[in-house]
């Protein structure tokens, strides 16, 4: 076991994947000598050279489009989009090309491309640097979407994403980059079933009265809320989804069947979001055990506000507790 930050753990995971498979390449803006604006690729240029850690022209569509071409020849490009708000120039390549190629070629072309995106807010950044666009992509068949909440998961899940045959959008909660945790760096990597493993939700905390579903940056918020609940005599179970596509519905339903209550917490705006999807699935599969309507705690239907306002915009521990109160009255 080693203590690492999330950023450091993803860096270590990238390194492992590159050592294991010479076809793994990194592409992105400022990922070489700078090591990425968050230093997630720090040191990799020095150790793997410019052919494997490529600083690209400043064009997101170009990055994903050329990564598609390279992966057609068996390469496994791991692309970094510098910030969530800058993925949109590549939206076409991701949704009409990357996500559909396996389907439209009837399985003759596989594109094992990983797109790493520092996402979500809470760091006091300027406009376009704090967004949570996961629902926009979750609506697209052909893309897997995962997000690690802990250094251990960051280390393992980036390797699992890279070894997956499908394109993976790998969302890194940037506000958690500096959170520390224990990482088992020596555990042997199991490629078999890696894609299923990274999509399996994790019970981050066991409880009996209410299920709080979270992912990425809100897992910590949910855990903090659960702690407060405990002092107030409410036992909350926290589920870390890990994957948004595919969603581990079974894990959520299993928990809700035990607790009878469900709250979903994400930073993305609530309308048409992942929480709405979970609420629908829970009502389809666990309707008769529900003690209360499924509650959603997320951002509002506004653009991401100026950073001095972001702590009112983002789902805070208090807002989660407010939702707990609402579902517990039933």
């Amino acid at each position: 076991m080693e203590t690492m930050t999330l950023a450091g753990a993803i860096n270590a995971g990238l390194r492992k994947a590159m050592e294991r498979d010479p076809k793994v390449l990194l592409m992105g803006q400022d990922i070489g000598s700078l090591g990425g604006v968050f230093r997630v690729t720090d040191g990799l240029l020095k150790d793997f050279g410019g052919d494997r850690v490529m600083d690209t022209p400043l064009a997101e569509s170009g990055i994903i489009g050329t990564a598609i071409g390279m992966s057609m020849r068996g390469y496994r490009p791991v692309c970094e989009i510098q910030f969530d708000g800058f993925i949109f120039p590549a939206f076409n390549q991701i949704t009409t090309q990357l996500a559909k190629m396996h389907y439209r070629s009837q399985g003759k072309i596989t594109l094992p491309v990983v797109i790493r995106v520092p996402f979500a807010g809470g760091i006091g950044a300027v406009e376009h640097h704090s967004e949570s666009p996961e629902a926009l992509f979750a609506h697209t068949a052909g893309l897997r979407i995962v997000t690690p909440a802990t250094p251990q998961d960051g280390f393992l899940m980036i390797q699992q994403a890279i070894s997956t045959a499908d394109p993976v959008l790998f969302l890194e909660p940037k506000a958690r980059y500096w959170d520390k945790g224990e990482v088992d760096v020596e555990a042997p990597f199991v490629a078999e079933g890696a894609s299923a493993a990274m999509s399996r939700a994790r019970i981050a905390r066991h409880g009996d009265d209410v299920t709080i579903v979270a992912y990425g940056p809100t897992v910590r918020v949910a855990l903090q809320a659960a702690q407060v609940c405990e002092s107030e005599g409410v036992s909350a179970e926290v589920i870390d989804l890990r994957a948004i596509s595919p969603l581990d519905t079974a894990a959520v339903v299993r928990s809700v069947k035990k607790t009878g209550r469900c709250i979903v917490v994400h930073e993305a705006p609530t309308p048409f979001g992942v929480g709405a999807e979970i609420a629908a699935r829970v009502s389809e599969e666990a309707f008769y055990v529900l003690e209360a309507p499924v509650a959603r705690v997320g951002a509002f239907h506004t653009p991401y506000p100026a950073s001095k306002l972001e702590h009112d915009y983002l789902p805070s521990v208090d807002r989660v507790l407010d939702a707990v109160d609402r579902v517990m009255v039933h």
Partner: peptide
């Protein structure tokens, strides 16, 4: 595509120019 070295048709105008470029970069490697 692999049987003819002829990729699929692409209907989203211009999208495949990047795939061609990436493919060429990979051939070079």
């Amino acid at each position: 595509p692999d049987e003819h070295n002829f990729h699929l048709y692409t209907l989203v105008i211009g999208s495949h120019t990047l795939h061609a470029t990436g493919y060429a970069m990979a051939m070079d490697r």
